[in-house]
Design a binder for these strands. Sequence first.
DNA 1: AAATTAATGCACTTCCGTTGCATACTTCAA
DNA 2: TTGAAGTATGCAACGGAAGTGCATTAATTT
Lengths: 138, 138
Amino acid sequence: MLNLENILTNNNVKPTAMRLLVLQFLLNKKSATSLTDVENYFDKSDRTTIYRTLKTFVEKGISHKIDDGTGITKYALCEENCHCEIDNDLHLHFHCTNCNETICVTDYKIPKITLSRGYIAENINLVVKGICDTCNKN
Amino acid sequence: MLNLENILTNNNVKPTAMRLLVLQFLLNKKSATSLTDVENYFDKSDRTTIYRTLKTFVEKGISHKIDDGTGITKYALCEENCHCEIDNDLHLHFHCTNCNETICVTDYKIPKITLSRGYIAENINLVVKGICDTCNKN
DNA sequence: AAATTAATGCACTTCCGTTGCATACTTCAA
DNA sequence: TTGAAGTATGCAACGGAAGTGCATTAATTT
């Protein structure tokens, strides 16, 4: 049983009320979530607390940070066996310019990139922008 | 002869003093440049003017915008035959986490990406972070 | 229960991108 | 050549987002 509390404790994060709520929210949302998204969802919430909650999640490997090129940092829960870095994970992200949602495309594997001699790649960020499934239908 | 003035007039941009200076600066810099970079370089400069200068350059196809994932918009001159979009161009960018410079890797071609049915890709942004050539030596 | 550590909430700062508006400079037509 | 229209510039200010400092509260340990 992988309940909310376990997810936190398994990653050495103490399951406080706020953290459980934020985790729940992230679980329900399929798309990547911004700090403001979370803040708006909870009426009586403090921006800083949520900010630090998300930061903790990223540091402890519960979620990862997404830079989708909108200038707003997004967060998404890691997959079961996610090996993402602290600051970025390695799958493709799709950002819909219509509904403004960003989703993780985990089944797409980023191809190996050969750089010029002397360059060391530590992290790859691949974002495709366009129109998503849902918006395309409407 | 492709002097500074020609670059501007060829792209329907009037060659004002400020624009020539900014263009010169961009030409000399090999790496991608932020608004603040330009601002700091010119002592007696107005942020807004430079901002609008860079914006004009992008709109007229003289330079392109780069989102290197640092959260700070960068600009780089387009290549001779650059077919970049207004908001992004399509080659790989390398961001060095040590010296904080971002460079265009124009010889790397972004591979075709096949998305799930219903998704339309309009733009692709590929950023590799790591240690650059120069920093690696030192 | 006291003391230490961790989490939270509030206020505030900083940074970047952006806009509004008034002034200066060009261009062009009468 | 003058005056009107358009363009560029400079100053001030706004707004959003990330991040910090500090005091308060809650949880843990001894």
